[in-house]
Design a protein around this nucleic acid. Structure first.
Length: 643
RNA sequence: GCCAAUGUGGCUCAGUCGGUAGAGCAGCUCAUUCGUAAUGAGCAGGUCAGCGGUUCGAAUCCGCUCAUUGGCUCCA
């Protein structure tokens, strides 16, 4: 039979050869490191016999799917260890993740840290035993008989089609219902490591029982594991929640409340700089400003549908049952800007109208959801709504994407973002307003636009807003966890609810399209992301302190003050450190604070009208004259140069 | 909201068996006029997250609350 290999070459092999045998014949080492195989695009065990012509790719730990096969087996080794140590535990599911694996167990008492070390020890034993992993299949009724003591496995089987053939994997004293694929023996897992325990609802539904989940990972050598753990430790150092507090960007206080961070002067300055930049940029791009109330009567949210869909997420004031007026703090700005639109009659000639507002919003997040500056109860967003005709939709959408790309470039994260096309979930229709036909129509329109402007995106079912599909701009934080920083939505439902119209050229009133959009997302979250991305060393143009001048002698202090005044006149944010401290000490402090420019003056500089210049990340870059320095710094700020 | 862990000066941490709190850094004061990652001395700073209980006595044991962290669920 003919096998087309990864690099495109075609080779002849004996029928029935396994992927492993083929790998071995190609390269002795590959035969040893092979963890799984991809046959005609399908990932299977490496010892699967191949019976006909196909394409074949050998997967090792270097490949995403090879890694996952190993980690998946890791989860079975974990389950086997738990079965040996805690025979009463019931088994749910145990998949591989992007960075390891987990397994969910139902057990009377949670796993303690001591349990975890015991389990890890047992796992190492199982790895050392190098137990072969054998796959077998059963029909439905035999399978049900086989798992009769495992309620969760039984439920899984009952939910599969009646004629499904169920695969099981056996490794010594442990057998698990599983779709695979797996590596060939427990020994391949090499160096397993358990990381933490967590609670997790059975099947991800909060109405179900909470199970005990154990997270772990595995590597081929202790060295690789150590490197991974070290990497995690370094990520922790960059965590905005730690670093942001250390550097004085924000703080929290128990008496203020959860999800209500106090932004300190440094953070507030950066946010103000970003906000001014966005407001100016939006003005250049034809946005008009609105300023709307922080709260409204429940009436408004009843029209928008938020009252039915998100009442739990709103801060509601006033008790209806006591006959009080019921108000709610705004969780978004849309209905307010719609009211502004509706205050006047509009012609097609008025469109598009681009409303923008730096908008503070309030959302009553559940207590367990709050996290640093990422998930908060009050935040400020560059929010905007574009009202346009159907013909204008595409060009307006492009304009929004163009603005976002420009902004992302200015803050230096254009290569760190990915796009996600968030669609509704037809199987969960009650979460949304509007009928399926309309949803399909609008999603088709949106996909058309995305494809036309050539964005590469991944699709996500069930991530849409309740009133329309979204383009989400995603950013991965230091721990690899993805968060939405910006969303753009096409709204086809709220215009109707708010009876928004424009008079078209034929004199007929028609319903406009609305684009909900942000250009930088919420400022708190953006600040968090920037702190993590730059490890606190934010780009020059948005640093609250851009230049610090330091004198060596008192005589030079006046000289520093003088130049500081000059820089300030050009809008540069500068401070002077004229304390009587050693210069090395002053520099150390400025470095710890990630100050972009340190200008040092002593006798020599005083005489020559220069400064010894230290640039963040580069150290000493030599002496520079005042005029030269002024021009350089002002230019770099204006051009938003990133270093 | 759910499952867990954690909570000692601004920060990092020590505090044994329950006997009444300790260090380094930061801060302040004084001295030092100093050349690129820590000058010296002194001072101040804590109801041990809060409340309640057990006890002759609680940072330590128990309960509740609050906050933080890791997950789950949620995220207009």
């Amino acid at each position: 039979m003919k096998i087309t290999l990864f690099d495109g070459t075609v080779k002849e092999f004996e029928q029935g050869s396994t992927a492993k045998e083929i790998a071995k014949s190609l390269n002795q080492k590959l035969g040893k490191t092979a963890l799984a195989a991809k046959i005609d695009g399908k990932v299977v065990e490496v010892d699967t016999p191949i019976t006909q012509d196909c394409t074949l790719e050998i997967l090792t730990f270097e490949d995403e799917q090879g890694k996952k096969a190993l980690w998946h087996t890791g989860s079975h080794v974990l389950a086997q260890a738990v079965k040996r140590l805690f025979p009463d535990a019931k088994f749910a599911i145990g998949p591989a993740t992007d960075s390891g694996f987990y397994y969910d167990f139902d057990k009377e008492t949670p796993f303690s840290n001591e349990d975890l070390s015991k389990i890890e020890k047992e796992m190492k034993k199982i790895v050392a035993e190098n137990i072969p992993i054998e796959k077998f299949t059963l029909g439905r009724s035999e399978a049900l008989e086989f798992v009769k003591n495992e309620p969760y496995k039984t439920e899984l089987i009952l939910d599969l089609p009646k004629d499904a053939v169920l695969s099981f994997y056996k490794q010594g004293d442990f057998t698990d219902l599983c779709a695979g694929p797996h590596v060939q023996s427990t020994g391949k897992v090499k160096v397993p490591k358990l990381l933490r325990t967590a609670g997790a609802y059975w099947r991800g539904n909060e109405k179900n029982k909470m199970l005990h989940r154990i997270y772990g990972t595995a590597f081929l050598s202790q060295k690789e594991l150590d490197e991974y753990l070290e990497q995690m430790k370094q990520a922790e150092e960059r965590d905005h929640n730690k670093l942001g507090r250390e550097l004085g960007y924000f703080t929290t206080h128990a008496a203020v409340g959860q999800g209500l961070p106090l932004i300190m002067p440094k953070g507030a300055k950066t946010i103000q700089v970003l906000q001014r930049f966005i407001e100016d940029e939006e003005e250049k791009r034809g946005y008009v400003l609105t300023k709307t109330p922080y709260m409204a009567k429940s009436e408004l949210y009843k029209i928008s549908g938020h009252w039915d869909h998100y009442q739990d997420g709103m801060f509601v004031l006033g008790d209806e049952e006591k006959g009080e007026e019921v108000l709610a703090l705004r969780p978004m700005t849309c209905p307010f800007q719609y009211m502004i639109y509706n205050a006047q009659q509009h012609s097609y000639k008025d469109l598009p109208i681009r409303y923008g507002e730096t908008s503070t919003l309030f959302r009553n997040e559940a207590s367990g959801e709050m996290h640093g500056l990422i998930r908060v109860r009050q935040f400020t967003l560059s929010e905007g709504h574009i009202v346009c005709t159907p013909q204008q939709l595409e060009s307006e959408f492009m304009g929004v994407v163009d603005l976002i790309k420009y902004v992302m470039g200015c803050i230096g994260i254009e290569n760190d973002i990915t796009y996600r096309f968030s669609k509704w979930d037809p199987n969960d229709a009650k979460k949304y307003i509007g009928n399926p036909q309309l949803w399909n129509e609008v999603e088709t329109v949106m996909r058309g636009i995305l494809d036309h402007i050539g964005l590469s995106y991944k699709e996500a079912v069930g991530e849409a807003a309740f009133y329309g599909p979204k383009l989400d701009i995603q950013f991965k934080n230091v721990f690899g966890k993805e968060d939405t920083i910006i969303t753009v939505q096409i709204d086809f439902a709220l215009a109707e609810r708010f009876s928004m119209t424009y008079v078209d050229s034929d004199g007929v009133k028609k319903m406009p399209y609305i684009i909900h959009r942000s250009s930088i997302g919420c400022y708190e979250r953006t600040l968090a992301m920037l702190i993590e991305k730059y490890a606190g060393a934010l780009p020059l143009w948005m640093m609250s302190e851009q230049v610090r001048l330091m004198n060596i002698t008192d005589e030079a202090a006046a000289y520093c003050q003088e130049f500081a005044q000059k820089l300030r006149a050009y809008g540069v944010r500068v401070t002077v450190d004229d304390r009587q401290e050693k210069i090395g000490y002053k520099i150390r402090e400025a470095r710890n604070e990630r100050i972009p420019y340190m200008l040092v003056a002593g006798e020599k500089e005083l005489a020559e009208k220069t400064f010894a210049v230290r640039k963040r990340g580069q150290g000493d870059i030599g002496g520079m004259g005042q005029q030269e320095l002024l021009e350089l710094i002002v230019k770099q700020i204006a051009e938003k140069v990133i270093f």
